[in-house]
Simulated assay, not measured.
Amino acid sequence: MKICSHRGYVVSIFTRNEHCPPHVHVGNERWDARFQFSFWHNGVALWDVKPIRQGPSASLLEEFRQVIEQPANLRMARQRWWLSRHSVCVEHQHWDPYREQVVSPSVFRRNTFEIVWARYVPWRDRTELQLVGHALPLEIEL
Rank of each mutant, 00 (worst) to 15 (best):
I68R: 11
R124N: 13
W40Q: 10
S59N: 00
A33F: 00
L136V: 13
W82V: 09
Q130G: 13
H41I: 01
H6R: 10
E63H: 11
F64G: 00
L46I: 05
S104M: 04
Q36N: 13
D48A: 01
I3L: 06
T127E: 07
E69D: 09
V24Q: 07
E29N: 11
N111H: 13
H41C: 03
V116T: 12
R126Y: 01
F37H: 04
Q54C: 02
R75W: 12
V88T: 08
V10H: 06
I13M: 10
M76N: 11
R85Y: 00
E91R: 13
D48W: 03
E91D: 06
E18W: 02
G133R: 06
R78Y: 07
R99Q: 14
W95L: 03
N42P: 02
R34A: 00
S5R: 02
S57K: 01
R16V: 10
S106F: 14
G27T: 07
R85D: 05
V11W: 02
Q79I: 14
Q36H: 12
A45N: 08
F113T: 12
G27F: 06
L74P: 00
E62G: 05
H6P: 09
L74Q: 05
R99Y: 13
Q130P: 14
L138V: 04
M1C: 13
L129F: 04
S5G: 03
Q54I: 02
H134L: 12
V103M: 09
Y120I: 09
R99G: 15
L83N: 15
R16C: 12
L46S: 03
S106T: 11
V116E: 08
W31E: 00
V103C: 10
P105D: 00
R110C: 15
V116C: 13
S12K: 15
R7I: 03
W47M: 02
K50C: 01
G43N: 09
H6F: 09
W47Q: 03
Q66H: 14
P51E: 00
P22M: 14
R110Y: 15
R34D: 02
S104F: 14
F39G: 02
A77M: 05
E128M: 06
R109I: 14
H94T: 10
I3D: 10
S59R: 04
Y98A: 13
V102W: 04
Y9L: 06
R110S: 13
F113Y: 12
F39Q: 03
E100V: 10
A72F: 15
W47A: 03
E91L: 06
D96L: 11
A77C: 02
I140Q: 09
I115W: 08
V49M: 01
V132N: 15
A77K: 08
I13D: 09
E69N: 12
E29K: 10
F39A: 04
Q66R: 12
N111G: 09
H6M: 11
R85I: 08
C20R: 11
Y98V: 15
H94R: 08
L74T: 03
N28D: 12
F108V: 15
W95S: 07
H25T: 04
P56G: 05
W123T: 15
E114Q: 07
H86E: 08
L61E: 04
A72I: 09
